[in-house]
Design a protein around this nucleic acid. Sequence first.
DNA 1: GTCTATAAGGCGATAGAC
DNA 2: GTCTATCGCCTTATAGAC
Lengths: 189, 189
Amino acid sequence: MATTRDLLVDTMKQLLWERGYDATSPNHVLERSGVGKGSFYHHFKSKKDLAIAAMESRADELIAEFEQIIRSTEGDWLDKVSAYLLLPRDALKGCRMGRIVQDPSVEDPALIAPLQRYFVAIHQGLSALYAKAQAEGKLQPECSPDGLATATVSVIQGSFVYGRAVVQAGVVTAACETFIGLLAVQRLN
Amino acid sequence: MATTRDLLVDTMKQLLWERGYDATSPNHVLERSGVGKGSFYHHFKSKKDLAIAAMESRADELIAEFEQIIRSTEGDWLDKVSAYLLLPRDALKGCRMGRIVQDPSVEDPALIAPLQRYFVAIHQGLSALYAKAQAEGKLQPECSPDGLATATVSVIQGSFVYGRAVVQAGVVTAACETFIGLLAVQRLN
DNA sequence: GTCTATAAGGCGATAGAC
DNA sequence: GTCTATCGCCTTATAGAC
């Protein structure tokens, strides 16, 4: 059953994706969810409080999605990374987490925390994958696993930014395909 | 001489970098610049109007910086791209243009225009460089110049996002160094 | 738990004097 | 060109009844 609290969290997740944190008001959440102002401040002590709950939920969801793709994709390290990089992503909509990072209010440590947790999880997952591939002699050892993971995350996030600026939804996939091409050269065996 | 108009534009450029578009109010600009409200609306018909002027000015500045680096750096295509990628960049401050892209109000075509002009200019400059290198047989022909340019811009922009999320100023340079490593393998001759 | 009413303050902008 | 006063609207809540 969808409790009022869950409804507020789900609605906030939508709006954080569409408009970020600063530009989303409690009133927007109330209008879209149909919940009343009294209920809002009964379940959450502030907009920030709700946003943190929404971001934690989104982080859980996206980390689980990442781990599922990496785990279940058949093949070697490049197949797994490629599967993740080629998930459908609309540059105009933005990344469901990365979208929020640039908001001025998100310098607040309490608001950064779930974002940081998300990005660290993805980064570590990729880094571990690259490290294992190098240990098995299947990936060139010149670039560090850490550096490769940072670049991988950055290509995805940056293509959202670039794609939105040039108003081309397909840019994320284009950037990721090129990056896969650069990684493919690093494959050994 | 610094006219009032110029002072407003320069102050808006600062604030757009620090807080983006939506979170910057005319009052912020007035407080920091010491200009009065009457002057503001004498020189500009709206906040949007001033922001566009500020973004156009910033685009000119950053495009000129890019072209100067590419032109004046000695060596081959990789030296030139590396020089651009390794410019000092503080992830916590954000890209002076890319910072603004995610603001909800910036879906407005009039506000996107200067951002688009900036990103297209950098993209085309890089793409031309890669195309020339391929034509001269100095760069592997597998990846398209267009794709490589998109990936290059994306790594820079995305590392600003990732770096801000994990609160590490040095991430942009780290990501760019790894990307240079991946490009280096593509060099011929 | 949910409702409606209210509040102080910021927002983007305008009016009209100087 | 610049100043101050004012505007209507929106924001993030809080109060107190039901």
